[in-house]
Protein backbone atom coordinates (compact mmCIF):
# COMPACT_ATOMS: atom_id res chain seq x y z
CA UNK A 1 0.00 0.00 0.00
CA UNK A 2 2.79 2.35 0.95
CA UNK A 3 4.57 1.47 -2.27
CA UNK A 4 1.42 2.25 -4.32
CA UNK A 5 1.09 5.59 -2.57
CA UNK A 6 4.71 6.39 -3.36
CA UNK A 7 4.24 5.54 -7.02
CA UNK A 8 1.12 7.68 -7.12
CA UNK A 9 2.68 10.74 -5.46
CA UNK A 10 5.84 10.46 -7.53
CA UNK A 11 3.82 11.12 -10.70
CA UNK A 12 2.55 14.37 -9.26
CA UNK A 13 5.70 15.74 -7.65
CA UNK A 14 9.15 14.26 -8.15
CA UNK A 15 8.47 12.78 -11.62
CA UNK A 16 5.75 15.16 -12.78
CA UNK A 17 5.43 14.55 -16.54
CA UNK A 18 5.31 18.26 -17.43
CA UNK A 19 7.55 19.84 -14.82
CA UNK A 20 10.25 17.22 -14.37
CA UNK A 21 10.12 14.65 -17.20
CA UNK A 22 9.05 17.45 -19.59
CA UNK A 23 7.20 15.23 -22.02
CA UNK A 24 3.95 15.93 -23.83
CA UNK A 25 4.62 19.67 -23.84
CA UNK A 26 3.36 20.40 -27.36
CA UNK A 27 -0.32 19.76 -26.66
CA UNK A 28 0.06 21.40 -23.25
CA UNK A 29 1.25 24.71 -24.63
CA UNK A 30 -1.40 24.60 -27.36
CA UNK A 31 -4.55 23.91 -25.33
CA UNK A 32 -3.68 25.90 -22.21
CA UNK A 33 -5.19 29.09 -23.63
CA UNK A 34 -8.53 28.14 -22.10
CA UNK A 35 -9.17 26.90 -18.57
CA UNK A 36 -12.21 24.83 -19.49
CA UNK A 37 -10.42 23.11 -22.38
CA UNK A 38 -7.46 22.32 -20.12
CA UNK A 39 -9.73 20.69 -17.51
CA UNK A 40 -11.24 18.34 -20.10
CA UNK A 41 -7.85 17.69 -21.70
CA UNK A 42 -6.60 16.66 -18.24
CA UNK A 43 -9.55 14.34 -17.69
CA UNK A 44 -8.98 12.77 -21.12
CA UNK A 45 -5.30 12.19 -20.35
CA UNK A 46 -6.05 10.68 -16.90
CA UNK A 47 -8.54 8.27 -18.47
CA UNK A 48 -6.34 7.18 -21.38
CA UNK A 49 -3.21 6.91 -19.25
CA UNK A 50 -4.82 4.87 -16.48
CA UNK A 51 -6.73 2.56 -18.81
CA UNK A 52 -3.80 1.89 -21.15
CA UNK A 53 -1.45 1.35 -18.20
CA UNK A 54 -3.90 -1.11 -16.64
CA UNK A 55 -4.54 -3.09 -19.84
CA UNK A 56 -0.88 -3.25 -20.82
CA UNK A 57 0.12 -4.33 -17.34
CA UNK A 58 -2.52 -7.09 -17.24
CA UNK A 59 -1.39 -8.53 -20.55
CA UNK A 60 2.31 -7.76 -20.23
CA UNK A 61 3.29 -11.44 -20.10
CA UNK A 62 1.44 -12.14 -23.35
CA UNK A 63 2.93 -9.19 -25.24
CA UNK A 64 5.99 -10.35 -27.21
CA UNK A 65 8.93 -7.98 -26.94
CA UNK A 66 9.31 -7.58 -30.72
CA UNK A 67 5.81 -6.21 -31.34
CA UNK A 68 5.18 -4.43 -28.05
CA UNK A 69 5.20 -0.91 -29.50
CA UNK A 70 2.54 -1.57 -32.19
CA UNK A 71 0.41 -3.30 -29.58
CA UNK A 72 0.79 -0.40 -27.13
CA UNK A 73 -0.22 2.00 -29.88
CA UNK A 74 -3.32 -0.02 -30.77
CA UNK A 75 -4.40 -0.08 -27.12
CA UNK A 76 -3.73 3.64 -26.64
CA UNK A 77 -5.38 4.62 -29.92
CA UNK A 78 -8.50 2.66 -28.98
CA UNK A 79 -8.90 4.47 -25.67
CA UNK A 80 -8.22 7.82 -27.32
CA UNK A 81 -10.89 7.12 -29.94
CA UNK A 82 -13.35 6.24 -27.19
CA UNK A 83 -12.62 9.57 -25.46
CA UNK A 84 -12.90 11.36 -28.81
CA UNK A 85 -16.33 9.91 -29.59
CA UNK A 86 -17.69 10.40 -26.07
CA UNK A 87 -16.54 14.04 -25.93
CA UNK A 88 -18.01 14.73 -29.36
CA UNK A 89 -21.33 13.27 -28.22
CA UNK A 90 -21.61 14.83 -24.76
CA UNK A 91 -19.54 18.03 -24.56
CA UNK A 92 -19.52 19.38 -28.15
CA UNK A 93 -18.47 22.92 -27.13
CA UNK A 94 -15.35 21.62 -25.41
CA UNK A 95 -14.71 19.26 -28.31
CA UNK A 96 -14.87 22.18 -30.74
CA UNK A 97 -12.09 23.93 -28.80
CA UNK A 98 -9.81 20.92 -28.24
CA UNK A 99 -10.34 19.66 -31.80
CA UNK A 100 -7.26 17.92 -33.17
CA UNK A 101 -5.54 17.75 -29.77
CA UNK A 102 -7.82 14.96 -28.57
CA UNK A 103 -6.90 12.50 -31.36
CA UNK A 104 -3.29 13.64 -30.91
CA UNK A 105 -3.25 12.18 -27.37
CA UNK A 106 -2.33 8.96 -29.22
CA UNK A 107 1.12 10.35 -29.96
CA UNK A 108 1.48 12.10 -26.59
CA UNK A 109 4.79 10.80 -25.23
CA UNK A 110 3.45 10.62 -21.68
CA UNK A 111 1.11 7.76 -22.54
CA UNK A 112 3.50 5.65 -24.59
CA UNK A 113 6.34 6.57 -22.24
CA UNK A 114 4.52 5.23 -19.18
CA UNK A 115 3.40 2.11 -21.04
CA UNK A 116 6.97 1.33 -22.04
CA UNK A 117 8.79 2.48 -18.92
CA UNK A 118 6.33 1.43 -16.22
CA UNK A 119 3.27 -0.64 -17.13
CA UNK A 120 5.26 -3.20 -19.17
CA UNK A 121 7.43 -4.05 -16.15
CA UNK A 122 5.13 -3.60 -13.16
CA UNK A 123 2.01 -5.08 -11.62
CA UNK A 124 -1.52 -3.98 -12.37
CA UNK A 125 -2.15 -2.01 -9.18
CA UNK A 126 1.18 -0.21 -9.37
CA UNK A 127 0.51 0.62 -13.04
CA UNK A 128 -2.90 2.03 -12.22
CA UNK A 129 -1.35 4.10 -9.41
CA UNK A 130 1.30 5.30 -11.84
CA UNK A 131 -1.31 6.20 -14.47
CA UNK A 132 -3.46 8.08 -11.98
CA UNK A 133 -0.47 9.87 -10.46
CA UNK A 134 1.02 10.89 -13.80
CA UNK A 135 -2.42 11.86 -15.11
CA UNK A 136 -3.25 13.98 -12.08
CA UNK A 137 0.24 15.50 -12.13
CA UNK A 138 -0.34 16.45 -15.76
CA UNK A 139 -3.83 17.79 -15.10
CA UNK A 140 -2.78 19.85 -12.08
CA UNK A 141 -0.07 21.62 -14.03
CA UNK A 142 -2.03 22.20 -17.25
CA UNK A 143 -5.11 23.46 -15.38
CA UNK A 144 -3.05 25.86 -13.27
CA UNK A 145 -1.13 26.98 -16.34
CA UNK A 146 -4.32 27.55 -18.35
CA UNK A 147 -5.90 29.42 -15.44
CA UNK A 148 -3.01 31.90 -15.37
CA UNK A 149 -2.91 32.23 -19.17
CA UNK A 150 -6.65 32.75 -19.60
CA UNK A 151 -6.85 35.17 -16.66
CA UNK A 152 -4.01 37.40 -17.80
CA UNK A 153 -4.45 36.83 -21.53
CA UNK A 154 -8.17 37.47 -21.90
CA UNK A 155 -9.05 39.12 -18.58
CA UNK A 156 -11.49 36.52 -17.22
CA UNK A 157 -11.61 32.78 -16.57
CA UNK A 158 -14.77 31.02 -17.72
CA UNK A 159 -15.99 27.49 -17.04
CA UNK A 160 -19.03 26.04 -18.84
CA UNK A 161 -20.38 29.51 -19.54
CA UNK A 162 -19.92 30.91 -16.01
CA UNK A 163 -17.22 33.46 -15.24
CA UNK A 164 -15.06 32.21 -12.36
CA UNK A 165 -12.72 35.18 -11.94
CA UNK A 166 -12.46 38.42 -13.84
CA UNK A 167 -9.91 41.18 -13.84
CA UNK A 168 -11.14 44.80 -13.74
CA UNK A 169 -11.91 46.22 -17.17
CA UNK A 170 -8.98 48.66 -17.13
CA UNK A 171 -6.61 45.70 -17.40
CA UNK A 172 -5.42 45.68 -21.05
CA UNK A 173 -5.22 41.83 -21.45
CA UNK A 174 -2.11 41.46 -23.62
CA UNK A 175 -2.70 38.90 -26.38
CA UNK A 176 0.92 37.73 -26.16
CA UNK A 177 0.03 35.68 -23.07
CA UNK A 178 -2.29 33.58 -25.26
CA UNK A 179 0.27 33.26 -28.07
CA UNK A 180 3.19 30.84 -28.14
CA UNK A 181 5.92 33.25 -26.99
CA UNK A 182 3.87 33.99 -23.87
CA UNK A 183 3.35 30.27 -23.34
CA UNK A 184 7.09 29.61 -23.39
CA UNK A 185 7.94 32.49 -21.05
CA UNK A 186 5.21 31.52 -18.59
CA UNK A 187 6.21 27.87 -18.79
CA UNK A 188 9.76 28.85 -17.86
CA UNK A 189 8.46 30.75 -14.83
CA UNK A 190 6.36 27.73 -13.84
CA UNK A 191 9.42 25.49 -14.07
CA UNK A 192 11.46 27.83 -11.90
CA UNK A 193 8.69 27.96 -9.29
CA UNK A 194 8.29 24.18 -9.34
CA UNK A 195 12.03 23.69 -8.86
CA UNK A 196 12.03 26.13 -5.96
CA UNK A 197 8.93 24.83 -4.18
CA UNK A 198 8.29 21.19 -5.01
CA UNK A 199 11.50 19.51 -6.15
CA UNK A 200 13.61 20.96 -3.37
CA UNK A 201 11.46 19.31 -0.69
CA UNK A 202 12.44 15.89 -2.11
CA UNK A 203 16.11 16.79 -2.21
CA UNK A 204 16.27 17.87 1.39
CA UNK A 205 14.74 14.63 2.53
CA UNK A 206 17.39 12.86 0.51
CA UNK A 207 14.93 10.89 -1.62
CA UNK A 208 16.18 12.15 -4.96
CA UNK A 209 18.28 9.69 -6.86
Amino acid sequence: MKHLMQVFVRGITRENPLMILMIGLCATLAVSTQFQGAVFMGIAVIFVLTMSNAIISVFRRFIPDEVRIPMFIVVIASFVTIVDLVMKAFVPSVYAFLGIWIPLIVVNCIILGRAEAFAYHNGVLASIADGLGMGIGYTAVIVLFAFVRELFGSGAVKFLGATLVGLPSWYPAPAVVLLFPGAFVLFGLFLALWRALVSRVGEERGVCR
Partner: peptide, 27 residues
Protein backbone atom coordinates in the same frame (compact mmCIF):
# COMPACT_ATOMS: atom_id res chain seq x y z
CA UNK B 1 3.84 -12.32 -33.03
CA UNK B 2 1.13 -12.34 -35.68
CA UNK B 3 -1.42 -13.92 -33.36
CA UNK B 4 -0.90 -11.38 -30.57
CA UNK B 5 -1.10 -8.35 -32.86
CA UNK B 6 -4.19 -9.69 -34.65
CA UNK B 7 -5.91 -10.48 -31.34
CA UNK B 8 -5.21 -6.98 -30.02
CA UNK B 9 -6.55 -5.36 -33.17
CA UNK B 10 -9.71 -7.48 -33.21
CA UNK B 11 -10.49 -6.75 -29.55
CA UNK B 12 -9.78 -3.04 -30.06
CA UNK B 13 -11.96 -2.87 -33.16
CA UNK B 14 -14.79 -4.58 -31.28
CA UNK B 15 -14.57 -2.11 -28.43
CA UNK B 16 -14.57 0.81 -30.82
CA UNK B 17 -17.53 -0.55 -32.76
CA UNK B 18 -19.56 -0.71 -29.55
CA UNK B 19 -18.58 2.85 -28.52
CA UNK B 20 -19.31 4.13 -32.00
CA UNK B 21 -22.77 2.57 -32.18
CA UNK B 22 -23.63 4.13 -28.80
CA UNK B 23 -22.34 7.61 -29.57
CA UNK B 24 -23.06 7.97 -33.31
CA UNK B 25 -26.76 8.93 -33.05
CA UNK B 26 -25.94 11.44 -30.32
CA UNK B 27 -23.13 12.99 -32.35
Amino acid sequence: LVASVVTTCVVAAGGLAVTYSVTAPRI
